[in-house]
Simulated scan of single mutants.
Amino acid sequence: MPRITPFLWYHERAEEAAAFYVSLFPNSRILHTVHATEPIPGAHPGSVLTVEFELNGQRIVAMNGGPTFTLDEAFSLSVEVDTQEEVDRLWEALIADGGTPSQCGWLRDRWGLSWQITPAILNQLMADPERAARAAASMMTMGKIDIATLIAAVDGG
């Protein structure tokens, strides 16, 4: 059976990004790093070409491909968490050192990768036809999702 693996293009610093991501999530590790063995466009012998890693069991490959392409919001990694503490921890870590908060639980990290940090309760509320509209309206006013505010808005409090 074929395996589907997200492949991320970085100008440089793919190894640094992968190491940082692995530090944030349980069950995560660097699997393999490929170094250039001869000069190729954008790389010199010994430089990192690709890093294969797992985030909580999800395989991802990061490549130092040069400045030709950049990461943007058209692709993101979505992380579903259970608690506000998890939302806060991941949000703060991912926007640190040059990341950019956005709205509705989205952010861009310092390397330009977009993330969605989503509490599981939001997905549950959005699936409830009687509460979905209020949940969506509340979420649209937020950058980082605040679970207590979301529940209060949905329950009319």
Results as ranks from 00 to 15, higher is better:
135 A>M: 03
7 F>P: 06
93 A>D: 12
65 G>C: 11
87 V>M: 07
30 I>E: 05
116 Q>N: 05
11 H>Q: 15
139 M>T: 01
55 L>R: 04
48 V>D: 02
21 Y>G: 06
56 N>T: 06
131 R>D: 01
36 A>L: 11
37 T>I: 12
72 D>I: 08
44 H>P: 04
8 L>D: 11
59 R>H: 11
75 F>K: 09
26 P>W: 01
57 G>K: 08
71 L>I: 07
55 L>E: 10
4 I>C: 12
63 M>H: 09
143 G>Q: 15
102 S>K: 14
127 A>F: 03
112 G>H: 00
30 I>A: 05
52 E>M: 12
13 R>A: 07
119 P>L: 06
87 V>W: 05
112 G>Q: 03
59 R>S: 13
71 L>R: 10
74 A>H: 13
126 M>W: 00
58 Q>W: 10
100 T>I: 08
12 E>N: 15
98 G>P: 01
8 L>S: 13
66 G>N: 08
15 E>T: 09
109 D>T: 03
2 P>K: 14
18 A>M: 12
28 S>I: 00
99 G>Y: 02
84 Q>Y: 06
2 P>M: 14
106 W>H: 06
27 N>G: 10
94 L>M: 08
86 E>H: 13
152 A>H: 01
92 E>I: 09
31 L>Y: 08
48 V>F: 06
100 T>N: 10
74 A>R: 15
92 E>R: 15
69 F>P: 06
25 F>W: 04
29 R>D: 13
80 E>A: 14
35 H>F: 11
139 M>H: 00
107 L>H: 06
126 M>G: 02
76 S>E: 05
96 A>P: 08
71 L>E: 05
143 G>I: 07
147 I>L: 04
93 A>Y: 10
58 Q>L: 15
28 S>G: 03
92 E>D: 15
117 I>H: 01
54 E>Y: 03
64 N>L: 00
28 S>N: 01
150 L>K: 10
23 S>A: 08
3 R>H: 11
72 D>K: 07
67 P>Q: 06
16 E>H: 14
12 E>P: 08
6 P>T: 02
81 V>P: 04
56 N>P: 06
61 V>Q: 14
76 S>P: 07
122 L>K: 01
123 N>W: 12
122 L>Y: 02
41 P>W: 09
135 A>S: 05
121 I>K: 06
98 G>R: 04
4 I>R: 13
133 A>N: 12
82 D>Y: 06
15 E>S: 12
